[in-house]
Design a protein around this nucleic acid. Structure first.
Lengths: 150, 150
DNA sequence: ACTATTTAAGAGTATTTAGTCTTAAACTAA
DNA sequence: TTAGTTTAAGACTAAATACTCTTAAATAGT
């Protein structure tokens, strides 16, 4: 699996937030229900995004979370790095510690190219671009396709 | 992590076998020591490659495993699919079941391109190409770099 | 036949990831 | 100030992955 489940859930929730265009806080409970993700688990994941500065949260009634930046300024790679860490883009595909120019593995060069391709794909995908595309085509972000963009 | 540890170990062992150019069986014990991989764990992994038809094994004294095809005819993708399965190349990056042309996720198209890039990289890397490169540059296939190509 | 060697197979353990549950703390509104 | 709502945090459980150990089966050499 390329990305952890936590990471994928974080991406889906971020897309949800991007789709609301709202300055208001969105409650995690609401998101968990619409996205069909366990509330407590989603809470933990969004705490990571909050700690990373991608979201800000507010407690109490009418509290919740919201993006700290315009959705057009947030790309998927920020979410991936915040949750899964930078390892995908820094580590050897054979898992060899310190694999680099000095003493590379046989796959080092090819993997470096592929890795950059993955990074570019994620860095070139902003939340608002994907949310707009999702809205326009009523695309799926839940397993059963039940999610309705607003 | 892109590939499981089992998969990475299977790749390293396959590179080892490719580097020996040998028609003989190589014992798993020897490989486990030179590659610094737990013997029993490596045995299990190589059983998967044997079941997939990439290796053939022989029991008893002077037994072991060997490639069933010339190393130039085996590419990394065969090892990846044999051990990690085809999911990396078939599944949605957001983990949505049945994500496809009919009802895709917002990342579907971009991921399809990236996925093919990864597949091409693995399909275009044969064991003998990598083993030759490893030998020529004394490249690393163990964590401590202690492995010596023969 | 017997013994040593080697892979096969299955049970068992450890670690990581995924997910749940409970309590605390912050906040809003009445 | 009290009650209800919401995120924060930590302990806990479940499942998947990673790894270990034991026994069986096959084989080769004596």
């Amino acid at each position: 699996m390329l990305l952890s489940k936590s990471c994928v859930y974080g991406m889906r929730a971020s897309l949800y937030l991007a789709s609301t265009y709202s300055q208001e806080y969105t409650s995690i409970r609401t998101m968990s229900e619409k996205l069909d993700i366990s509330f407590h688990f989603l809470t933990k994941i969004l705490q990571q995004l909050t700690a990373a500065g991608l979201l800000e949260s507010h407690k109490g009634p009418s509290g919740g979370v919201r993006l700290t930046k315009p959705a057009g300024k947030i790309s998927l790679i920020e979410i991936v790095v915040a949750i899964d860490g930078p390892e995908l883009f820094t580590e050897c595909v054979l898992g060899l510690p310190g694999c680099g120019i000095e003493k590379p593995c046989p796959l080092h060069e090819k993997w470096a190219v592929t890795r950059e391709h993955i990074r570019d794909m994620l860095a070139g995908s902003t939340l608002d671009e994907l949310a707009d595309k999702g809205k326009a085509g009523n695309l799926r972000i839940t397993a059963d396709g039940s999610f309705v963009w607003e």
